[in-house]
Design a protein around this nucleic acid. Structure first.
Lengths: 239, 239
DNA sequence: ATTGTGTGTCTTGCATGCATGAAGATGACT
DNA sequence: AGTCATCTTCATGCATGCAAGACACACAAT
């Protein structure tokens, strides 16, 4: 019984995915007509999708000026990380008390995979498994609203996290921090799980300056890669 | 230079306000045509507004079946309270370190007003000032994203909080907890401010069962007040 | 060279039209 | 009476049409 999905929802998901995956860079113009053609619909569902994304903070619609992928400056990214840290921290806290045995087993399995891939050394492959690791903990919170909320913030940040793991030694550190979190979770220690997770997500001390200096911009400064210019929309200068 | 606001944005704000203020009860049907007439527009901006509200979790759009104000069950409300507690906690933590002298003065002033109104005894009047108290702390976090996010969760919960303060002794307890938070904030103690705020928002122990037993329903069970039935949309049974 | 003005073009915002599918009503049958 | 099937009605989802506002370019003036 495939629940029916309207075009506007499909478009919203597709566009959100483009943004999260970095195919649509911050600052990129999202032209209604172009998108309509690309997806083979009229402008109406495109507009509705853009409105939804705007309501969630993924795009910005300036009246009469069209929609652009939201570009976050350093400050805003750090603000979102502060939020992310407490949300993931809460996930961990709740998960420590609520995960079922099956979920705990799952967590251990995914964690083991993370360790394996970390040793293998490809940051991008690790990135995917890292995401799954966190997802397991979201689910372990047994709090759907929290799960959705956390994922939404995570998605909003994703364009800016892409390269985080490419930093030297970052993967190793990440997996070590996971290990500590897992231990606290399996021991059922909510306080420690929360505080370790907050530290894992939070950007402090050296990590902060590292992150800031590395982040600069996926911000499509003047024009995005030509390959995408035609497919997603017409690029414009970010003001 | 009044920034131009599109009809769909106006409608979205108006509808969100109706929901938060309890004029549109959970489960109430939001008929596009009725709303269009009520606001003197065509269905298009109404639809766009509904999509935005749906993206933020205020309404639910079932394909081909129209939009209804989201009705949260007890479980979902508790889930949101868990989120609310950490978000407000973070606000308090950050505010403890970041509030300017002017903001601190503001906080004290509002708190004093709260104390005065609490003594006066009208829960509804206190409710308004209580909201302002929390808003001051949101702003004090100096984190815009957090401010917005927290406000959004608060708004989603507002239909269910309306009567919380009507509970005997609840106002007095609330203002006392505020007092503790204010002290921690003014002393610049982030840890204490956060944990006190979390406890203030969180529903634990007796408060939990009190809340649950009192909450039961804004859920528009069968039909909302007739006065509103015509103005907001046609009521239907919640399935 | 830079700034201001006018015009043309184009996109957005909203209104309207139409087909699809859902809810409700009617009626037949058990 | 109760249950099921068909039909009617109507709201939604999407396409299209049109006016208003924004951008870009050209040109004039300082």
């Amino acid at each position: 019984m495939a629940l029916p999905e309207t075009r506007s929802e499909q478009l919203a998901r597709a566009l959100e995915d483009d943004i999260c995956a970095g195919r649509a860079l911050p600052g990129m113009r999202l032209d209604e007509q172009v998108l309509a053609q690309r997806f083979g619909t009229s402008r109406t569902p495109v507009r509705e999708a853009l409105k939804m994304l705007a309501a969630q903070g993924f795009v910005e619609i300036r009246p009469r000026q069209g929609a652009v992928v939201v570009g976050l400056d350093v400050r805003q990214v750090l603000e979102l990380f502060e939020i992310m840290a407490v949300l993931e921290g809460l996930c961990a806290r709740l998960a420590a008390r609520r995960m079922t045995p099956a979920e705990r087993a799952d967590l251990m399995a995914v964690h083991a995979e993370c360790q394996r891939l970390a040793a293998a050394g490809d940051p991008d492959v690790y990135y995917a498994m890292n995401t799954r690791f966190h997802e397991v903990i979201y689910a372990g919170s047994h709090n759907r609203q929290l799960e959705e909320e956390t994922r939404r913030v995570r998605n909003r940040l994703s364009p800016y996290r892409r390269n985080q793991l490419h930093q030297l030694g970052r993967v190793a550190k990440s997996v070590q921090e996971h290990d500590d979190v897992v231990r606290a979770l399996l021991e059922g220690d909510p306080d420690r799980a929360e505080s370790l997770m907050r530290r894992h997500i939070g950007i402090q001390g050296d990590s902060l300056s590292d992150f800031v200096s590395n982040m600069s911009t996926p911000q499509a400064v003047s024009s995005p890669p030509p390959a995408l210019a035609g497919t997603l929309g017409r690029p414009t200068i970010v003001r």
